[in-house]
C-alpha cells in the first residue's frame, strides 16, 4: 500500500511517500510562481527517491492553501484536518496542535478520539506568521537559525506591538537606532510573534499535550517564547514542516 501526501503551502510544497504507513521518502520545493509545475516536480522527485512509479501509488491526498493545484490527487483535505491527523498520529497524547507556516498560523484543539473540537486561524495581519519573523531576521542581517539561537541569549523583556506587522517593524527599526543589542531585539520579535500565536491558542483553549508544527518550529527562540508564555513544554516533531503532508498521506481515499 503506497500513499502520498502533498502539502502545497504558501512558500514550500512538501511531499511525503508512505509504504504501509511508514515514511519511505520526503522532499520539498519552493512553491514559486509555477506552482503546478513544481507540484509535479516534487511528486516525481519523491517517487524517484522511493523507487516507485505512478502505477504503484494507491492514494494521493493533497492539502495546504495550494491544494487545488494538485489536480491528480485522489483525495483532498484542508490544512486543519491534515495538521491534526499528522500530529496526533505521531504523538497520540497531543490535544492541541499549533501550526505556524509562512503566511498563516493556526491552533487546533482535538478531543481524545482525535476529533477536532475547535480551531482558529490568524486573521489578516501577518504579524503572527513565519514570513514576518523571516523579514525581521533579514532586517538584523542574519539567518533565521542565528536569529533563533541568538534570541535565547537574551533575558530582556522589551514590549513590542504584535497587533500590526508594520508597527512592529517600525519598533524594530527604533530599537536598532537606539543601539539595542541584537539578541534583545530577536527575543522581542519572537516574544511578540509568539504572543500573537498564543493569543489564538487561548482563543480556542488548550489542553496538554501541545505540539508545534510547521517550519517556524525550527526557530528555537520562538519555541522558547511560546513555552514561556503557555507555561508548558511543547512537543516538536523531528521534521515539523512535513507533519501536514504526513497527515494527508495517512488520509487514504
Amino acid at each position: 500500500m503506497i500513499s502520498i501526501g502533498i502539502d502545497a503551502g504558501a512558500k514550500f510544497i512538501k511531499a511525503i511517500v508512505l509504504k504501509d504507513e511508514k515514511i519511505v521518502a520526503k522532499g520539498q520545493i519552493l512553491a514559486g510562481f509555477e506552482g503546478k509545475e513544481n507540484v509535479e516536480k516534487i511528486y516525481n522527485r519523491v517517487m524517484n527517491e522511493a523507487g516507485i512509479s505512478p502505477g504503484d501509488v494507491n492514494s494521493v491526498t493533497s492539502t495546504g492553501s495550494g491544494r487545488k493545484m494538485v489536480d491528480f490527487a485522489t483525495n483532498s483535505v484542508t490544512d486543519v484536518t491534515a495538521a491534526a491527523k499528522g500530529a496526533l498520529s505521531l504523538f497520540p497524547g497531543v490535544r492541541t496542535v499549533i501550526d505556524v507556516g509562512a503566511e498563516e498560523g493556526r491552533s487546533i484543539r482535538c478531543d481524545n478520539n482525535g476529533k477536532i473540537i475547535d480551531y482558529a486561524v490568524n486573521e489578516k495581519c501577518a504579524a503572527g506568521a513565519g514570513a514576518f519573523t523571516e523579514s525581521m531576521a533579514r532586517a538584523l542581517e542574519m539567518s533565521l537559525e542565528e536569529f533563533g539561537s541568538l534570541s535565547l541569549k537574551s533575558e530582556k523583556e522589551i514590549p513590542m506591538n504584535a497587533q500590526c506587522a508594520v508597527f512592529a517593524e517600525s519598533e524594530v527599526v527604533s530599537l536598532l537606532h537606539a543601539k539595542t543589542p541584537k539578541a534583545d531585539i530577536a527575543k522581542a520579535v519572537n516574544d511578540a510573534v509568539a504572543s500573537r500565536i498564543t493569543s489564538m491558542v487561548r482563543k480556542v483553549g488548550f489542553e496538554k499535550e501541545i505540539a508545534l508544527i510547521g517550519g517556524v518550529a525550527y526557530n528555537v527562540g520562538f519555541v522558547k517564547s511560546i513555552e514561556t508564555d503557555l507555561k508548558d513544554k511543547i512537543i516538536i516533531p523531528e521534521y515539523p514542516e512535513y507533519v501536514s503532508a504526513y497527515g494527508a498521506a495517512l488520509l487514504i481515499k
Binding site: 484542508t78 490544512d79 486543519v80 484536518t81 477536532i116 480551531y119 486561524v121
Partner: peptide
C-alpha cells in the same frame, strides 16, 4: 478574501 473564506468553509464542513 474570497479564497481564504472558501477554504475556511471547506475546513468547517469537513469537521
Amino acid at each position: 478574501d474570497e479564497a481564504k473564506t472558501s477554504s475556511r468553509m471547506d475546513s468547517f464542513m469537513e469537521t
